[in-house]
Simulated assay, not measured.
Amino acid sequence: MVLGVTFLTLSYPYEATKRIVPSTLETKIAEKRPLSTSEIKSFEQKFALKAVDSKLLQLKLKDKWYFSKRNTSDHIDVISLSNYNELMALQHREQLKKLVLNEAVLVNYYASLAPVNESFTLKDGSQTLQVKKATNQNPFAFANSVVTVIVSDAKFNELAQKYPNASYAIVSFDGKNMRDNEKLVQAFKKLRSHTLVLMSGIN
């Protein structure tokens, strides 16, 4: 029993940290200074990492949404199913099954057994996303995306065409035994100046 309690005490904070920042390293890319394909490949090779470049749409909501009892968001971050599953594969986590055009999945950061029935109406009133399913498998750090909504690839492309100025990018890196390697972060900061660099690990 003592051994079990000791293991949980030590392992739970580490697992919680992994959920806060699920990839080894993650950064939101500045629009004016994007990373080139060659820069990403070079960084992957140098540190034995794999990278996933994610495209998201930050869409304003008509009404603020409470993602906890006290915290609200005036937008949602939309990601395509294929992009989400690519990140799940990178992070060695369970992937989602195929979604139909108007089906959406909410990344629920607070575990709950209650059924999901959410409706996100965009600020211009032209689109409403109905959410009937949720997952606790967050693809990004909480600091970069709190209310993430997963849609089919077809729906994502439709929204991307309608809201071309809403897109932004996040690059995620993952590699074996690299989650608390400070040299990795320092090298990445020297590579380019980005909005935010987040790294998993207990410091």
Rank of each mutant, 00 (worst) to 15 (best):
N71M: 05
S82E: 08
K97T: 06
S73I: 05
L129G: 05
F140S: 15
G125M: 11
S112Q: 04
E94P: 00
Y110T: 13
A141T: 04
N144V: 10
V105I: 15
S73C: 11
V149L: 11
V116T: 14
N85C: 10
L101Q: 12
F142E: 11
Y109M: 13
T148F: 07
Q127V: 15
N102Q: 12
E86Q: 11
N102F: 01
A114Q: 14
A89Q: 11
G125V: 08
E86K: 05
L87G: 09
F140W: 14
K132P: 00
N117C: 03
S112G: 05
K98M: 02
F142V: 10
P115H: 13
L90F: 01
N144C: 01
E86F: 04
P115E: 15
A134N: 01
N102P: 02
T148A: 10
E118G: 02
F142L: 12
K132G: 12
N83C: 04
T128V: 13
V131K: 00
F140I: 09
S119T: 09
N102W: 03
N71D: 14
F120P: 01
A141S: 15
I76T: 05
N136V: 09
S126T: 13
A143C: 11
D124L: 10
A111W: 02
V131R: 02
Q130G: 02
A104N: 10
E103Y: 02
A114R: 14
L106Y: 15
T135G: 09
N71Q: 13
F142R: 05
Q95K: 15
S82C: 04
E94G: 01
V100K: 06
D74T: 04
A111P: 04
I76H: 06
S80D: 12
I76L: 13
V78T: 06
E94F: 01
E103T: 09
F142D: 07
T72A: 07
A104G: 06
N138T: 15
L101K: 12
V147I: 04
L106W: 13
A134W: 00
L99M: 11
N85I: 10
T135H: 03
I76Q: 06
N83D: 09
P139S: 00
N85M: 09
A134S: 06
T148M: 08
F120Q: 07
Q127M: 14
Q137D: 10
V78C: 05
L106H: 13
S82K: 11
Q137I: 08
T121D: 06
G125F: 03
V149F: 01
D124F: 03
D77S: 09
Q91G: 07
R93A: 12
K98P: 00
N85K: 03
L113D: 15
T148W: 03
T121N: 05
T128D: 08
M88N: 06
